[in-house]
């Protein structure tokens, strides 16, 4: 495992193939929870936490349970259950260990089960044939990319609130158009890694 490969995976997941802006994974929370900078940051942190752990766990489930037992067709069911259980578990642990963190992240945690970026990164890790370490790195980097995108978006939306948008485009439509322009900006990273 050389460091170059890891760096390529990180840069590719954060910038070039940003999970929200280029791969359309996690669009619901991206549009739903990006109205304020503070909540966007909370959501980003919660997603990073869960995605890193989920990448590791789903890799273990795939390679130590599903493959040896020849149960690949159960992949979708197994992964979503692992993620749902994990989210529940993370919620319990945070509530007991750190009430302040729970107050900051608590309301976002249940939403993460249906964040398609989490299941998406798990399936992408398997399809790309990553090893354990690379899966973990890819999961974390993808989540950092999500956080970056949602924070950028929240900053822009806070300013859009103050500007004069045509009535028909208020709310979601202007947010989608903004996301399109952000996505266009991220296109500029496309040539970074050969």
């Amino acid at each position: 495992m050389d460091i170059r490969e890891i760096m390529i995976v990180i840069i590719s997941a954060v910038l070039i193939n940003n999970y929200v802006l280029q791969r359309f994974l996690g669009c619901c929370p991206y549009l739903g929870v990006s109205k304020q900078l503070e909540t966007a940051l909370g959501m980003g942190m919660a997603v990073t936490f869960v995605m890193a752990i989920a990448s590791a766990f789903t890799w273990i489930v795939q390679h130590y349970i599903l493959l040896p037992l020849d149960l690949i067709f159960l992949q979708t069911i197994a992964f979503i259950l692992v993620i749902a259980a994990l989210v529940q578990f993370v919620e319990l642990v945070i509530r007991k260990s750190s009430p302040t963190l729970y107050q900051a992240l608590g309301i976002y945690l249940p939403l993460i089960t249906t964040n398609c970026a989490v299941l998406g990164v798990a399936v992408i890790n398997i399809r790309a044939g990553y090893g354990f370490l690379l899966s973990l790195v890819n999961g974390t980097a993808a989540a950092i990319g999500f956080t970056l995108a949602i924070i950028l978006m929240a900053g822009i939306r806070e300013r859009i609130e103050l500007s004069d948008v045509p009535p028909a485009l208020r709310g979601v439509p202007i947010a989608l158009i903004t996301a399109g322009l952000l996505s266009l900006a991220f296109f500029g990273f496309a040539g970074m890694v050969k």
């Binding site: 280029q22 028909a168 979601v172 989608l176 158009i177 399109g180 322009l181 996505s183 266009l184 296109f187």
Partner: peptide, 21 residues
Amino acid sequence: LAPGAFITLGLMIGLMNLLTK
């Protein structure tokens, strides 16, 4: 391409809002 997906859907929702109003 990716940016067009966001922009087209945004404009279409806007158009729907305009028509149904």
